[in-house]
Design a protein around this nucleic acid. Structure first.
Lengths: 188, 188
DNA sequence: TATGACATGTAATCTGTTACATGATTAG
DNA sequence: CTAATCATGTAACAGATTACATGTCATA
Protein backbone atom coordinates (compact mmCIF):
# COMPACT_ATOMS: atom_id res chain seq x y z
CA UNK A 1 0.00 0.00 0.00
CA UNK A 2 2.34 2.68 -1.18
CA UNK A 3 0.67 5.08 -3.58
CA UNK A 4 -2.70 6.42 -2.38
CA UNK A 5 -4.71 3.22 -2.84
CA UNK A 6 -2.47 0.23 -2.92
CA UNK A 7 -1.13 0.49 -6.45
CA UNK A 8 2.60 0.24 -7.04
CA UNK A 9 4.59 2.13 -9.63
CA UNK A 10 4.43 -0.92 -11.85
CA UNK A 11 0.65 -0.98 -11.43
CA UNK A 12 0.31 2.60 -12.61
CA UNK A 13 2.73 2.02 -15.47
CA UNK A 14 0.51 -0.85 -16.62
CA UNK A 15 -2.61 1.30 -16.35
CA UNK A 16 -0.90 4.00 -18.38
CA UNK A 17 0.17 1.63 -21.13
CA UNK A 18 -3.24 -0.03 -21.25
CA UNK A 19 -4.84 3.37 -21.60
CA UNK A 20 -2.80 3.86 -24.77
CA UNK A 21 -3.90 0.51 -26.16
CA UNK A 22 -5.24 -2.83 -24.95
CA UNK A 23 -2.38 -5.30 -24.67
CA UNK A 24 -1.45 -8.75 -23.50
CA UNK A 25 0.92 -9.30 -20.60
CA UNK A 26 3.56 -10.37 -23.05
CA UNK A 27 3.27 -7.19 -25.07
CA UNK A 28 3.54 -5.11 -21.93
CA UNK A 29 6.68 -7.01 -20.97
CA UNK A 30 8.15 -6.31 -24.38
CA UNK A 31 7.52 -2.61 -23.96
CA UNK A 32 9.35 -2.54 -20.63
CA UNK A 33 12.16 -4.61 -22.07
CA UNK A 34 12.58 -2.51 -25.19
CA UNK A 35 12.62 0.98 -23.68
CA UNK A 36 15.86 2.27 -22.29
CA UNK A 37 14.12 4.64 -19.93
CA UNK A 38 13.18 1.73 -17.74
CA UNK A 39 11.28 2.56 -14.63
CA UNK A 40 9.94 -0.94 -14.20
CA UNK A 41 11.11 -4.46 -14.65
CA UNK A 42 9.97 -6.64 -17.48
CA UNK A 43 10.00 -9.86 -15.47
CA UNK A 44 6.93 -12.07 -15.75
CA UNK A 45 7.04 -12.64 -12.00
CA UNK A 46 6.29 -8.97 -11.53
CA UNK A 47 3.93 -8.23 -14.39
CA UNK A 48 1.47 -11.11 -14.31
CA UNK A 49 0.77 -10.83 -10.58
CA UNK A 50 0.47 -7.05 -10.96
CA UNK A 51 -2.12 -7.48 -13.70
CA UNK A 52 -4.03 -9.91 -11.51
CA UNK A 53 -4.09 -7.41 -8.67
CA UNK A 54 -5.36 -4.70 -10.99
CA UNK A 55 -8.04 -7.05 -12.23
CA UNK A 56 -9.10 -7.93 -8.69
CA UNK A 57 -9.41 -4.20 -8.01
CA UNK A 58 -11.58 -3.80 -11.09
CA UNK A 59 -9.14 -1.46 -12.84
CA UNK A 60 -8.43 -3.65 -15.83
CA UNK A 61 -10.28 -6.51 -17.46
CA UNK A 62 -8.58 -9.42 -19.19
CA UNK A 63 -10.37 -11.36 -21.90
CA UNK A 64 -9.04 -14.62 -23.26
CA UNK A 65 -8.49 -14.53 -26.97
CA UNK A 66 -7.66 -17.79 -28.69
CA UNK A 67 -8.60 -17.56 -32.29
CA UNK A 68 -5.06 -16.83 -33.45
CA UNK A 69 -3.95 -20.43 -33.00
CA UNK A 70 -1.10 -19.59 -30.62
CA UNK A 71 -1.38 -20.39 -26.99
CA UNK A 72 -4.38 -18.55 -25.57
CA UNK A 73 -3.50 -15.04 -24.56
CA UNK A 74 -5.34 -12.55 -22.44
CA UNK A 75 -5.87 -9.06 -23.72
CA UNK A 76 -6.17 -6.52 -20.95
CA UNK A 77 -8.24 -3.40 -21.21
CA UNK A 78 -8.61 -0.45 -18.88
CA UNK A 79 -12.01 -0.22 -17.20
CA UNK A 80 -13.67 3.16 -16.59
CA UNK A 81 -12.68 2.77 -12.94
CA UNK A 82 -9.11 2.11 -14.04
CA UNK A 83 -9.08 5.23 -16.16
CA UNK A 84 -10.32 7.41 -13.34
CA UNK A 85 -7.77 5.87 -10.99
CA UNK A 86 -5.03 6.63 -13.51
CA UNK A 87 -6.26 10.20 -13.90
CA UNK A 88 -6.42 10.71 -10.15
CA UNK A 89 -2.81 9.55 -9.88
CA UNK A 90 -1.70 11.85 -12.68
CA UNK A 91 -3.33 14.99 -11.35
CA UNK A 92 -2.03 14.63 -7.80
CA UNK A 93 0.13 17.63 -6.95
CA UNK A 94 3.87 16.99 -6.68
CA UNK A 95 4.97 16.89 -3.06
CA UNK A 96 8.41 17.28 -1.59
CA UNK A 97 8.12 13.70 -0.39
CA UNK A 98 7.66 12.53 -3.95
CA UNK A 99 10.62 14.58 -5.08
CA UNK A 100 12.82 12.86 -2.52
CA UNK A 101 11.55 9.29 -2.68
CA UNK A 102 9.65 8.83 -5.91
CA UNK A 103 10.96 11.19 -8.55
CA UNK A 104 10.48 8.44 -11.10
CA UNK A 105 6.77 8.46 -10.38
CA UNK A 106 6.55 12.14 -11.22
CA UNK A 107 8.13 11.61 -14.61
CA UNK A 108 6.01 8.55 -15.29
CA UNK A 109 2.88 10.48 -14.38
CA UNK A 110 3.90 13.22 -16.74
CA UNK A 111 4.70 10.81 -19.55
CA UNK A 112 1.12 9.53 -19.47
CA UNK A 113 -0.52 12.81 -18.60
CA UNK A 114 -1.25 14.14 -22.04
CA UNK A 115 -3.01 11.08 -23.43
CA UNK A 116 -4.79 10.14 -20.24
CA UNK A 117 -5.75 13.52 -18.83
CA UNK A 118 -5.20 16.14 -21.47
CA UNK A 119 -2.79 18.97 -22.14
CA UNK A 120 -4.11 21.11 -19.34
CA UNK A 121 -3.40 18.37 -16.81
CA UNK A 122 0.09 17.86 -18.22
CA UNK A 123 0.80 21.55 -17.88
CA UNK A 124 -0.63 21.69 -14.37
CA UNK A 125 1.58 18.79 -13.33
CA UNK A 126 4.65 20.59 -14.64
CA UNK A 127 3.72 23.71 -12.74
CA UNK A 128 3.20 21.73 -9.58
CA UNK A 129 6.60 20.14 -10.08
CA UNK A 130 8.21 23.52 -10.61
CA UNK A 131 6.62 24.87 -7.45
CA UNK A 132 7.76 21.90 -5.39
CA UNK A 133 11.31 22.34 -6.66
CA UNK A 134 11.25 26.04 -5.98
CA UNK A 135 10.47 25.31 -2.35
CA UNK A 136 12.82 22.36 -2.00
CA UNK A 137 16.01 23.66 -3.62
CA UNK A 138 16.75 26.36 -1.02
CA UNK A 139 16.47 23.75 1.73
CA UNK A 140 19.01 21.56 -0.03
CA UNK A 141 21.41 24.46 -0.55
CA UNK A 142 21.11 25.35 3.09
CA UNK A 143 21.80 21.76 4.07
CA UNK A 144 24.88 21.73 1.88
CA UNK A 145 26.19 24.82 3.64
CA UNK A 146 25.64 23.31 7.05
CA UNK A 147 27.26 19.97 6.24
CA UNK A 148 29.74 19.11 9.02
CA UNK A 149 33.24 20.28 8.21
CA UNK A 150 34.46 16.71 8.58
CA UNK A 151 32.49 15.62 5.50
CA UNK A 152 34.96 14.26 2.95
CA UNK A 153 35.13 15.87 -0.47
CA UNK A 154 33.42 12.95 -2.16
CA UNK A 155 30.46 13.19 0.20
CA UNK A 156 30.17 16.89 -0.46
CA UNK A 157 30.42 16.40 -4.21
CA UNK A 158 27.75 13.70 -4.13
CA UNK A 159 25.45 16.09 -2.31
CA UNK A 160 26.21 18.78 -4.88
CA UNK A 161 25.19 16.41 -7.62
CA UNK A 162 21.91 15.88 -5.86
CA UNK A 163 21.30 19.61 -6.02
CA UNK A 164 22.40 19.85 -9.63
CA UNK A 165 20.03 17.09 -10.57
CA UNK A 166 17.10 18.95 -9.07
CA UNK A 167 18.20 22.16 -10.79
CA UNK A 168 18.29 20.30 -14.07
CA UNK A 169 14.80 18.98 -13.43
CA UNK A 170 13.61 22.47 -12.69
CA UNK A 171 15.09 23.84 -15.87
CA UNK A 172 13.49 21.06 -17.84
CA UNK A 173 10.12 21.72 -16.25
CA UNK A 174 10.47 25.38 -17.07
CA UNK A 175 11.27 24.67 -20.72
CA UNK A 176 8.48 22.13 -20.96
CA UNK A 177 5.93 24.60 -19.62
CA UNK A 178 7.05 27.12 -22.22
CA UNK A 179 6.55 24.55 -24.95
CA UNK A 180 3.07 23.71 -23.71
CA UNK A 181 2.06 27.33 -23.53
CA UNK A 182 3.32 28.14 -26.97
CA UNK A 183 1.64 25.06 -28.43
CA UNK A 184 -1.53 25.78 -26.50
CA UNK A 185 -1.87 29.15 -28.17
CA UNK A 186 -1.17 27.75 -31.61
CA UNK A 187 -3.67 24.94 -31.32
CA UNK A 188 -6.58 26.53 -29.54
CA UNK B 1 20.61 -11.23 -3.61
CA UNK B 2 20.86 -8.06 -5.59
CA UNK B 3 24.37 -6.60 -5.34
CA UNK B 4 27.16 -9.08 -6.02
CA UNK B 5 26.91 -10.94 -2.73
CA UNK B 6 23.51 -10.48 -1.19
CA UNK B 7 23.85 -7.01 0.28
CA UNK B 8 21.17 -4.44 -0.39
CA UNK B 9 21.69 -0.72 -0.89
CA UNK B 10 20.73 -0.19 2.72
CA UNK B 11 23.33 -2.76 3.75
CA UNK B 12 26.09 -0.94 1.92
CA UNK B 13 24.93 2.40 3.26
CA UNK B 14 25.23 0.99 6.77
CA UNK B 15 28.70 -0.38 6.04
CA UNK B 16 29.74 3.02 4.71
CA UNK B 17 28.46 4.89 7.72
CA UNK B 18 30.00 2.41 10.13
CA UNK B 19 33.31 2.80 8.35
CA UNK B 20 33.18 6.50 9.20
CA UNK B 21 32.45 5.77 12.85
CA UNK B 22 31.05 2.99 15.03
CA UNK B 23 27.40 3.70 15.76
CA UNK B 24 24.28 2.26 17.30
CA UNK B 25 21.26 1.38 15.23
CA UNK B 26 19.51 4.40 16.59
CA UNK B 27 22.28 6.76 15.55
CA UNK B 28 22.26 5.30 12.07
CA UNK B 29 18.52 5.83 11.88
CA UNK B 30 18.98 9.44 12.91
CA UNK B 31 21.49 9.98 10.14
CA UNK B 32 19.10 8.65 7.51
CA UNK B 33 16.28 10.71 8.96
CA UNK B 34 18.27 13.94 9.12
CA UNK B 35 19.79 13.99 5.65
CA UNK B 36 17.71 15.33 2.82
CA UNK B 37 19.60 13.34 0.24
CA UNK B 38 17.83 10.22 1.37
CA UNK B 39 18.72 7.08 -0.44
CA UNK B 40 17.49 4.83 2.33
CA UNK B 41 14.66 4.70 4.79
CA UNK B 42 15.16 5.38 8.47
CA UNK B 43 12.56 2.88 9.61
CA UNK B 44 13.59 0.52 12.41
CA UNK B 45 11.91 -2.34 10.60
CA UNK B 46 14.48 -1.94 7.85
CA UNK B 47 17.62 -1.01 9.77
CA UNK B 48 17.69 -3.48 12.64
CA UNK B 49 17.10 -6.51 10.44
CA UNK B 50 19.71 -5.21 7.99
CA UNK B 51 22.26 -4.89 10.79
CA UNK B 52 21.49 -8.44 11.88
CA UNK B 53 22.05 -9.71 8.38
CA UNK B 54 25.37 -7.91 8.17
CA UNK B 55 26.36 -9.37 11.51
CA UNK B 56 25.44 -12.88 10.40
CA UNK B 57 27.63 -12.34 7.35
CA UNK B 58 30.49 -11.25 9.59
CA UNK B 59 30.66 -7.76 8.10
CA UNK B 60 29.86 -5.85 11.28
CA UNK B 61 30.07 -6.70 14.94
CA UNK B 62 27.66 -5.35 17.55
CA UNK B 63 28.73 -5.08 21.17
CA UNK B 64 26.26 -4.33 23.93
CA UNK B 65 27.15 -1.25 25.86
CA UNK B 66 25.19 -0.55 29.01
CA UNK B 67 27.27 1.58 31.26
CA UNK B 68 25.46 4.78 30.33
CA UNK B 69 22.38 3.90 32.35
CA UNK B 70 19.99 4.17 29.46
CA UNK B 71 18.50 1.11 27.95
CA UNK B 72 21.29 -1.15 26.70
CA UNK B 73 22.40 -0.22 23.25
CA UNK B 74 24.49 -2.04 20.73
CA UNK B 75 27.40 -0.30 19.11
CA UNK B 76 28.21 -1.68 15.69
CA UNK B 77 31.65 -1.71 14.21
CA UNK B 78 32.90 -2.68 10.78
CA UNK B 79 34.96 -5.87 10.72
CA UNK B 80 37.98 -6.21 8.41
CA UNK B 81 35.81 -8.41 6.21
CA UNK B 82 33.17 -5.69 6.21
CA UNK B 83 35.70 -3.11 5.15
CA UNK B 84 36.97 -5.20 2.28
CA UNK B 85 33.40 -5.90 1.18
CA UNK B 86 32.69 -2.17 1.22
CA UNK B 87 35.81 -1.45 -0.79
CA UNK B 88 34.99 -4.13 -3.32
CA UNK B 89 31.59 -2.54 -3.79
CA UNK B 90 33.08 0.92 -4.20
CA UNK B 91 35.68 -0.01 -6.77
CA UNK B 92 33.33 -1.93 -9.01
CA UNK B 93 33.26 -0.31 -12.43
CA UNK B 94 30.07 1.52 -13.35
CA UNK B 95 28.01 -0.50 -15.79
CA UNK B 96 25.24 0.60 -18.08
CA UNK B 97 22.93 -1.63 -16.07
CA UNK B 98 23.74 0.33 -12.94
CA UNK B 99 23.17 3.61 -14.75
CA UNK B 100 19.69 2.47 -15.72
CA UNK B 101 18.55 0.67 -12.59
CA UNK B 102 20.73 1.76 -9.70
CA UNK B 103 22.05 5.24 -10.29
CA UNK B 104 21.62 5.93 -6.61
CA UNK B 105 24.09 3.20 -5.83
CA UNK B 106 26.72 4.88 -7.97
CA UNK B 107 26.37 8.13 -6.08
CA UNK B 108 26.34 6.37 -2.74
CA UNK B 109 29.48 4.46 -3.65
CA UNK B 110 31.14 7.69 -4.62
CA UNK B 111 30.07 9.44 -1.44
CA UNK B 112 31.88 6.82 0.62
CA UNK B 113 34.76 6.27 -1.77
CA UNK B 114 37.23 8.78 -0.46
CA UNK B 115 37.15 7.75 3.19
CA UNK B 116 36.84 4.05 2.56
CA UNK B 117 39.08 3.53 -0.43
CA UNK B 118 41.12 6.68 -0.98
CA UNK B 119 41.26 9.52 -3.45
CA UNK B 120 42.58 7.36 -6.27
CA UNK B 121 39.56 5.04 -5.97
CA UNK B 122 37.19 8.02 -5.89
CA UNK B 123 38.74 9.39 -9.04
CA UNK B 124 38.69 6.00 -10.76
CA UNK B 125 35.03 5.62 -9.97
CA UNK B 126 34.28 9.00 -11.52
CA UNK B 127 36.18 8.07 -14.65
CA UNK B 128 34.35 4.79 -14.88
CA UNK B 129 31.07 6.68 -14.54
CA UNK B 130 32.09 9.12 -17.25
CA UNK B 131 33.02 6.29 -19.59
CA UNK B 132 29.73 4.49 -19.00
CA UNK B 133 27.82 7.69 -19.73
CA UNK B 134 29.83 8.37 -22.84
CA UNK B 135 28.77 4.99 -24.18
CA UNK B 136 25.18 5.19 -23.01
CA UNK B 137 24.16 8.69 -24.05
CA UNK B 138 24.37 8.11 -27.82
CA UNK B 139 22.11 5.08 -27.44
CA UNK B 140 19.54 7.16 -25.63
CA UNK B 141 19.69 9.91 -28.24
CA UNK B 142 19.22 7.36 -30.96
CA UNK B 143 16.28 5.87 -29.14
CA UNK B 144 14.70 9.31 -28.84
CA UNK B 145 15.04 9.80 -32.59
CA UNK B 146 13.40 6.48 -33.32
CA UNK B 147 10.49 6.93 -30.93
CA UNK B 148 7.24 6.09 -32.75
CA UNK B 149 5.63 9.16 -34.29
CA UNK B 150 2.50 8.45 -32.28
CA UNK B 151 4.31 9.18 -29.01
CA UNK B 152 2.53 12.09 -27.31
CA UNK B 153 4.50 15.23 -26.53
CA UNK B 154 4.56 14.50 -22.81
CA UNK B 155 6.10 11.07 -23.40
CA UNK B 156 8.72 12.59 -25.64
CA UNK B 157 9.50 15.33 -23.14
CA UNK B 158 9.82 12.82 -20.32
CA UNK B 159 12.33 10.88 -22.39
CA UNK B 160 14.21 14.09 -23.09
CA UNK B 161 14.43 14.73 -19.39
CA UNK B 162 15.96 11.31 -18.95
CA UNK B 163 18.67 12.27 -21.39
CA UNK B 164 19.20 15.67 -19.80
CA UNK B 165 19.60 14.05 -16.41
CA UNK B 166 22.36 11.81 -17.72
CA UNK B 167 24.03 14.77 -19.41
CA UNK B 168 23.94 16.61 -16.14
CA UNK B 169 25.51 13.64 -14.40
CA UNK B 170 28.20 13.52 -17.02
CA UNK B 171 28.98 17.19 -16.63
CA UNK B 172 29.14 16.77 -12.89
CA UNK B 173 31.49 13.80 -13.18
CA UNK B 174 33.67 15.81 -15.52
CA UNK B 175 33.86 18.73 -13.08
CA UNK B 176 34.48 16.42 -10.14
CA UNK B 177 37.38 14.72 -11.92
CA UNK B 178 38.91 18.11 -12.59
CA UNK B 179 38.65 18.96 -8.91
CA UNK B 180 40.29 15.72 -7.90
CA UNK B 181 43.11 16.16 -10.34
CA UNK B 182 43.81 19.72 -9.29
CA UNK B 183 43.68 18.80 -5.62
CA UNK B 184 45.79 15.72 -6.24
CA UNK B 185 48.58 17.87 -7.62
CA UNK B 186 48.39 20.31 -4.76
CA UNK B 187 48.44 17.72 -2.03
CA UNK B 188 50.87 15.16 -3.35
C1' DT C 1 13.62 -32.80 -34.92
C1' DA C 2 15.63 -29.17 -32.51
C1' DT C 3 15.69 -24.35 -31.65
C1' DG C 4 13.88 -20.06 -30.81
C1' DA C 5 10.10 -16.74 -30.49
C1' DC C 6 5.59 -16.44 -28.61
C1' DA C 7 2.86 -16.55 -24.23
C1' DT C 8 1.62 -17.43 -19.52
C1' DG C 9 2.30 -18.57 -15.24
C1' DT C 10 4.15 -20.31 -10.23
C1' DA C 11 7.19 -20.90 -6.08
C1' DA C 12 10.94 -19.58 -3.10
C1' DT C 13 13.08 -16.04 -1.26
C1' DC C 14 14.38 -11.42 0.08
C1' DT C 15 13.67 -6.84 1.41
C1' DG C 16 11.13 -3.03 2.81
C1' DT C 17 6.82 -0.73 4.89
C1' DT C 18 3.69 -0.10 8.49
C1' DA C 19 2.32 -0.46 12.77
C1' DC C 20 2.85 -1.95 17.08
C1' DA C 21 5.37 -3.28 21.60
C1' DT C 22 8.75 -2.56 25.09
C1' DG C 23 11.35 -0.19 28.38
C1' DA C 24 14.57 3.46 30.60
C1' DT C 25 15.50 8.15 31.55
C1' DT C 26 14.85 13.08 31.75
C1' DA C 27 12.24 17.46 31.83
C1' DG C 28 8.23 19.85 33.02
C1' DC D 1 2.72 12.01 37.05
C1' DT D 2 3.10 12.64 32.18
C1' DA D 3 5.17 13.41 28.04
C1' DA D 4 9.11 13.35 25.22
C1' DT D 5 13.27 11.35 23.88
C1' DC D 6 16.37 7.60 23.76
C1' DA D 7 16.75 2.82 22.06
C1' DT D 8 15.55 -1.66 20.37
C1' DG D 9 12.90 -4.72 18.46
C1' DT D 10 8.81 -7.79 16.19
C1' DA D 11 4.92 -9.27 13.23
C1' DA D 12 2.04 -8.90 9.20
C1' DC D 13 2.06 -7.84 4.80
C1' DA D 14 3.26 -6.19 0.02
C1' DG D 15 6.04 -6.38 -3.87
C1' DA D 16 10.04 -7.60 -6.58
C1' DT D 17 13.70 -10.95 -8.22
C1' DT D 18 15.03 -15.23 -9.72
C1' DA D 19 14.43 -19.35 -11.47
C1' DC D 20 11.73 -22.66 -13.08
C1' DA D 21 7.61 -24.92 -15.54
C1' DT D 22 4.53 -25.26 -19.33
C1' DG D 23 2.92 -25.18 -23.85
C1' DT D 24 2.31 -23.56 -29.06
C1' DC D 25 3.95 -22.52 -33.43
C1' DA D 26 7.27 -21.58 -37.20
C1' DT D 27 11.55 -22.52 -39.41
C1' DA D 28 15.84 -24.40 -40.49
Amino acid sequence: MKGGKGISRLGYALLGLLQQQPSSGYELRKIFAATSMKTCSDSPGAIYPALERLERQGLVRGTVEDGTGLRRRRMFRLTPKGLSELRAWIVRPVTQEELVWNQQDTLLRFAFSEQAAGRAAACALLKSLEAALKAYLPLLREELRSLPSTTPASGRLAFQYGIRGYECLRQWAHDAIAIYQKKGKGVL
